[in-house]
């Protein structure tokens, strides 16, 4: 029987393997060192604050909130009652052209500081299935803005239906931002879209005009987002996909 000689690994391959193993080991050691400081008692008390929360406030009343709990288990509390619930008195119909009070803002209902932004949507719907009425302009739903120096508009994200506003100052826990809106008005221009027909009724010539948008409903939808202030620029680009500049020492957030 022939003795088979075992071939040794080529020296180059062996050296590369040893080098890669050494690199891997070194990187692991680095992580372990970070872990040791991460779990030091002083640092541990800081990272136990998982409660980020945000509340949408309308005319001084909470209308929707989402607050994360004390444990880092992903659980949260949320609730919502809808917007404009108290806009009209019982039995009152909407008055075209009238400016109804609509002060909207955001409160930090968590326990860590946060940056906030709001996405505001205005549109028309019709029918039982609430299909969007594309031919009617969202501009007829007028939300008058407030505190525009603090709530800056992201013009790259603005469309006919959507308005995105960023609050330039961080909100401390419990703090309420200044309102971003004052009033809501449905423009009387919606009544200008009519169809006329002329009929003979009982000896009379009747010109009947029908409002094209009788029965359509307007919708105002607001989404409030919040993100941690720690590493805010990275957090915002990661969570909201938006480049921002956040300077230390209380300087305002700026859109990049």
């Amino acid at each position: 029987m022939k003795n088979r000689r075992r071939k040794a690994l080529p020296i180059g391959t062996l050296l590369m393997f040893i080098a890669s193993a050494a690199l891997l080991l070194t990187s692991s050691i680095g992580s372990a060192q970070a872990a040791l400081t991460y779990f030091s008692e002083t640092y541990k008390s800081q990272v136990e604050l998982y409660n980020i929360g945000v509340t949408l406030v309308e005319n001084g009343q909470d209308v929707a909130y989402r607050n994360y709990g004390n444990e880092a288990d992903g659980n949260w509390e949320e609730s919502g009652s809808g917007l404009l619930g108290n806009m009209l008195a019982e039995g009152e119909t909407l008055k075209l052209g009238k400016a109804y009070p609509e002060e909207l803002t955001v409160r930090n209902s968590g326990k860590i500081d946060e940056f906030v932004r709001v996405n505001i949507y205005r549109y028309w719907v019709k029918g039982e299935k609430e299909e969007k009425c594309q031919e009617l302009s969202p501009e007829l739903i007028k939300l008058e803005r407030a505190n525009e120096d603090l709530w800056i508009e992201d013009e790259t994200a603005t469309t006919a239906e959507r308005l995105v506003l960023y609050y330039t100052e961080p909100l401390a826990a419990g703090e309420v931002a200044l309102p971003f809106s004052k009033t809501l008005t449905i423009d009387g221009g919606v009544a200008k879209f009519v169809t006329k027909e002329t009929l003979q009724v009982d000896g009379k010539t009747v010109t009947r005009t029908t409002y094209d948008y009788n029965g359509v409903e307007f919708r105002l939808e607001v989404e409030a987002n919040a993100v941690q202030t720690h590493n805010a620029e990275d957090a915002i680009i990661s969570a909201w996909g938006r480049d921002v500049d956040v300077h230390p020492n209380g300087k305002p957030l700026r859109l990049g």
Partner: peptide, 17 residues
């Protein structure tokens, strides 16, 4: 990163007839 969000909407019909 710690993030959260909430939303609300509302509206009324127009009676033009």
């Amino acid at each position: 990163y710690f993030t959260t969000y909430t939303q609300a909407k509302g509206g009324y019909p127009l009676y033009l007839g």
